[in-house]
């Protein structure tokens, strides 16, 4: 049980770090959103799963309510994170920020 928790914590830390580094490696808003959204969501899922494992191993009413709250936080993150990034990307495109070295831009052709 402890080993599983350590593995989850390590995976979460690695992917969250990847998301933070992606903010500096990529050239424009959309590619930064790629890195930030995917990596931090994945990493946070594993960090929260580590807490779920910890609470389940602990047991009792404190452990069970810990598991409940962690799972609810996981559900909220999974629902709100892609939606928020989608809203930011659409707003950036409507504000007129061009994608960096785009091969094709279908949304621009529609003329919204």
């Amino acid at each position: 049980m402890n080993i599983l928790m350590y593995v989850f914590l390590a995976v979460g830390a690695v992917f969250n770090g990847l998301g933070a580094v992606a903010l500096h490696r990529f050239p424009d808003v959309y590619t930064r959103l790629h890195g930030a959204t995917k990596c931090t969501t994945f990493g946070s899922i594993f960090s929260i799963l580590a807490v779920v494992v910890y609470g389940a191993a602990r047991g009792g009413s404190v452990g069970t309510s810990m598991v409940i709250r962690a799972v609810l936080a996981l559900v909220f993150l999974l629902l709100t994170n892609p939606t928020g990034s989608h809203a930011l990307a659409r707003a950036a495109h409507r504000a007129g920020i061009k994608p960096f070295r785009a091969v094709v831009d279908r949304l621009e052709e529609v003329g919204k």
Partner: peptide, 26 residues
């Protein structure tokens, strides 16, 4: 450079802080 970049950074910080709060609560 642009405000959209800063908004993306703030969004990332939000997710990270939620994860930090859950970990610290445990």
């Amino acid at each position: 450079p642009t405000p959209a970049d800063r908004a993306v950074a703030l969004d990332t910080i939000n997710t990270l802080v939620v994860a930090i709060m859950v970990l610290l609560g445990a």
